[in-house]
Each structure stands twice: as structure tokens, then as C-alpha cells.
Amino acid sequence: MNATVLNQINPARSNLAKLWAAWQVISVVLLTGYSVVFFVSLGNTPQSRLIYLSLALILPVIACVAWAVAFTCYYQTRYFLAATIFVLGFILTLPTIATGGLQIAISWGLLS
């Protein structure tokens, strides 16, 4: 990624980048929120609901950390480590995106 592209996606540099950052925050909040709705619905007792709720909240945090570490490794030119952690980040992100996305689609009536 060259410097021009980096400048474009730097939130401090352009309005487009600010919009992009806002969209990222909104999408993460939406996906996490609806993922929480889905995970809590999997529990049948207060204890199991609490376990699923904690999982739903911690999973995105772990996924974000994995992506952050992967990008850091990438910029440090540790490409193998970066690729490995990218895969890990993808696996960690998948449950939140898939369940949150499907729950949004169902709740908003996009799937019939």
C-alpha cells in the first residue's frame, strides 16, 4: 500500500476517509449488536445466555486485535506471520459477520 492510498484512508486527511471510518464503526456496531441478539437467542437458561452473550461480545474484540496484529506484522514486513494472523483474524471475524449479517437480514425482512 503506497503513501497516497494511506493518506486517502487516514481519517484526519479527507472527508471521504471520515465517512469510511464512520461506516466502519456503524457496521461493526450493527454486526456486533445483531450477533449478540443471535447468540443470546441460543441460550435456554440465564447462565447459558450469559455465556453466549460474553462470547458474542469478546469475539469481535479478539477479531479486531487479530486484524490489528496482522496489519502491524504486514507493515513490519513479516509477511508469513501477517498472512497467518490474517487467516486467524478471518476465522475469528466470520462468526460475528455471518451471524450478525444473517440476523440483520432476518430482522429487517430482507430474507423471506
Partner: peptide
């Protein structure tokens, strides 16, 4: 990042124990 990893890891461990 290290603190978040360690914190979330121990939270995960507590959940897994329950």
C-alpha cells in the same frame, strides 16, 4: 494490544470454565 489479548484471553478462560 498485548493488554487486550491478555484481558480477553482470561475472560475467555473464565467463560470456558463456567
Amino acid at each position: 494490544i498485548r493488554n487486550i489479548v491478555i484481558g480477553s484471553g482470561f475472560a475467555m478462560w473464565a467463560i470456558s470454565i463456567i
